[in-house]
């Protein structure tokens, strides 16, 4: 059945939670590209058959013409599904660059495992592009994501951040579960990586 596999591939994007990645489905993707190649072979052989029969492919409307057309259309549909799959995942990756971190190792391992090799490269290249834009503007754009109410916020450390981190010229011991009163801009990178949480109220 034409196009059924591709449909499954696209469904992986839509059934998952929004903005969440499923593991990259290499197997299914390859099956769809295989179907594309099969479509193409049939398409070519039908065209050749018509040429052998001395028919003009542009004007003849016989069974072979429509057979070829169907293969062409299902190939295009498969291509669109493949592109949609990769493109939508790439958008989620762009989002990760913004929200989580510019370095691949800053991503939680569960997410890293779900990326394909090419996607990891794409992550690196995209964050490099963003970084070079930010350095040209001489301004970090991935901090300060929510409008500031107060320049200082209260945070709790959730993980072993390690010692020796210097925020605004002051070194502090960020032991797990300790609470601190920090500048919002200093704390934001840690909050987005899930290492600290903001305490409200």
């Amino acid at each position: 059945m034409h196009g059924r596999l591709a449909c499954r591939l696209v469904k992986e994007i839509t059934t998952g939670e929004k903005g969440q990645l499923q593991p990259f489905n290499d197997e299914l993707l390859n099956e769809v590209t295989k179907e594309c190649s099969e479509n193409f072979l049939v398409l070519q052989s039908l065209i050749r058959k018509m040429q052998d029969e001395g028919l003009d492919f542009q004007t003849t409307r016989n069974a072979d013409h429509y057979g070829a057309l169907i293969n062409h259309l299902s190939l295009i549909r498969n291509k669109r599904c493949l592109m949609a799959y990769v493109y939508n995942r790439a958008e989620i990756i762009q989002n990760l660059v913004w929200k989580v971190g510019l370095r691949l190792f800053e991503l939680p391992e569960e997410i890293q495992e779900k990326l394909s090799h090419s996607e990891k490269e794409y992550f690196n290249r995209h964050s490099a592009a963003l970084e070079s834009y930010m350095s040209k503007m001489d301004l970090d754009l991935n901090v300060d994501m929510v409008p500031p109410k107060d320049p200082y916020i209260k945070v709790r450390v959730l993980d072993d951040v390690g010692e020796g981190i210097v925020v605004s010229d002051k070194a502090a011991n960020f032991a797990r579960h300790s609470m601190h009163f920090l500048k919002r801009t200093d704390a934001e990178p840690y909050i987005s990586r899930g290492l600290m949480e903001e305490l409200t109220g």
Partner: peptide, 19 residues
Amino acid sequence: RCINDMEKHIEETVLSKLP
């Protein structure tokens, strides 16, 4: 740069495998 990166990624993952 974004366009180049995206093209490279799509090329590698999908397009190179198509007819």
